[in-house]
Design a protein around this nucleic acid. Structure first.
Lengths: 227, 227
DNA sequence: ACAAATTTTTAGATTTGTCTAAAAATAATA
DNA sequence: TATTATTTTTAGACAAATCTAAAAATTTGT
């Protein structure tokens, strides 16, 4: 357990967060170019920053081999993600923002430094487990609740589930979901699955709704066993 | 009315805010040294920054003559103060912080950039008029409500008033007030005023309480006319 | 009003995070 | 495997915000 507080600049925090997210895709090390693209900067800048993070022992780095977060770096990244998602929840549930509007503001709020603030915010919000896009909010110790979810496109005809999250959090997709009245918590039954293009006919709110494979690939459901 | 958004760095915003506060004390121009002390930096750094702000037309500056905020600079400073005080109110009223704990966190939150956020926060808090220290919160147009208040030390025996604010917002003083149960909204009657040292005997909560002149010089009351 | 003290500004250096351009290492391909 | 293409790193430069030390302007005191 790490009690020592490390001084982190805004830029360092953003790098750790990006590495955290990219590690899911590149488990054996995040490449300089991938990071540069994610951070919208140049590869040379990434190399510089990685060296700095490496000297602070926040990442493991060998030249030309990509980076991985160290244990310390991982736990800092998780705390930033915790802050981001708690603030998103606050913005939607308390301030009445739409779920497609909160990302940029949370991106700023996640860098506010105060453990007490986050502890009290968490309590005020009554310890939410998921952010407005269905992503899990890690607890103060950095543990993610293990929330069962499966991509809608992988369900079969007759299956049923509850909408618990989205994979794509872009404003365009979230607004598409709004227009089609798809919200977290909604119960969905798969009526038909078109083999030709992967589109699906769903039952939701006692109405039928057709969605494309692209959309179905970006919605998470928690399966309901029908017995 | 200024609609154009100006890109402001964190440092620039802090300078504008400090100049705003010092202008009350130095109405004919804030000196480089005074600003350096307030900002905890060196005079030479202040000169550099003032030049930058001057080029952006946020302050009026002539060499060796001190600075004043321009209209534009003033309105930006007021918006930062609005944000600071709204966040302080949020921290105390919603997150349950004490009034001596909120300054540093609000100092960070005041720099979050989003007009929509502040509008929604203001609404969520139900448009508060004063922050937890009794200081007025300017509205979205930058207008301060004209709230009547007088320093407690200037009251006379027999006068009565309601505690509406403090001049010194240091944690030490605020905790002293907490220990003596002095809170905003409390009704206070001046029983005796000691000529020798300026200390006062007050009636509050139907109890008597003696406070020093130093303390009385840092408490604001709204006078109640007794008819 | 003139010398001394103070304040303010300039000049040059430093740190952080970024950039471009070129060199070095690695990966891909014929 | 030799050559080409790609990726990554180095080297050197730049802007922002700060600093120290020294010069310039202003204010003060007699």
């Amino acid at each position: 357990m790490c009690i020592i507080k490390i001084e982190m600049t805004l830029s360092e925090e953003n790098y750790l967060k990006s590495i955290f997210h990219l590690e899911k895709k590149y488990a054996r090390g995040v490449s300089t170019n991938a990071l540069a693209e994610e951070m919208e900067t140049k590869a040379s800048s990434v190399t510089d920053m990685i060296k700095k993070l490496s000297e602070k022992n926040l990442v493991n780095y060998k030249k030309y081999q990509g980076v991985k977060l160290s244990e310390k770096g991982n736990s800092i990244a998780v705390q930033i993600i915790r802050k981001h998602r708690l603030w998103e929840y606050f913005l939607v549930e308390k301030l009445d923002f739409n779920w497609d509007e909160v990302h940029d503001i949370a991106e700023q709020l996640e860098h506010i430094k105060s453990d007490e603030l986050i502890a009290k915010l968490d309590k005020f919000l009554d310890y939410p487990k998921r952010d407005p896009h269905g992503d899990p909010i890690p607890d103060a110790e950095g543990n993610f609740a293990n929330l069962e979810k499966k991509i809608l496109a992988e369900f079969n005809e007759g299956d049923q589930g509850i909408c618990v999250g989205v994979k794509d959090s872009s404003a365009a997709f979230l607004q598409y979901l709004d227009r089609n009245k798809i919200k977290l918590g909604k119960s969905i039954t798969i009526l038909e699955k078109e083999q030709f293009d992967g589109s699906m006919i769903l039952k939701m709110n006692n109405k039928e709704l057709t969605i494309s494979k692209v959309a179905a690939n970006n919605i998470y459901l928690k399966p309901i066993s029908l017995e």
